[in-house]
Design a protein around this nucleic acid. Structure first.
Length: 126
DNA sequence: CGTATGACCATGC
DNA sequence: GGCATGGCCATAC
């Protein structure tokens, strides 16, 4: 299984109405995978996976959209994700906690460390 | 194999 | 908060 396929398998676990970041997916994949690589993978989703990979739920660490145009934002808003006046979403509210530890263990992924209140407090976007 | 490229990110003004 | 840098790493040529 190629690296990109692992990234797609992981991205398919993101439920509707939440978002995650390139960097978080990279950390869950592990093995030196980094945020740019996840971005590359999202840019290269094969046709047969286009319907199963929720690429729109992957955004940057600032809570913003990295793609051009309005498509991604509109898809997210249709799922209930709210953006503020500076085109950012609150990752504390809409950020995905990652797959369950059981799922990670079953597929060889690394669970995302829980975000503590201290690190989550720095952004009061709303 | 070296080089360039990019849906990125942490850091330091 | 914005902006510039350097680092990161898989692909494509």
């Amino acid at each position: 299984m190629s690296l990109y396929e692992r990234i797609y398998l992981l991205a398919e676990q993101i439920p509707p109405g939440v978002v995650t970041t390139y960097g978080d997916l990279a950390r869950i994949v592990g093995g030196g995978c980094d945020a740019r690589t996840v971005g590359e993978a999202m840019n290269a989703i094969p046709k047969d996976r286009a319907q199963s990979v929720p690429w729109q739920r992957v955004i940057n660490a600032q809570g913003g959209i990295s793609t051009r145009g309005l498509v991604q934002r509109q898809l997210l808003e249709a799922e209930g994700v709210v953006f503020n006046q500076r085109d950012r979403t609150d990752l504390r509210r809409f950020g995905w906690a990652g797959p369950s530890p059981e799922w990670c263990a079953a597929h060889g992924f690394i669970p995302l460390p829980p975000r503590d209140d201290a690190s989550a407090e720095q952004l009061s976007l709303f």
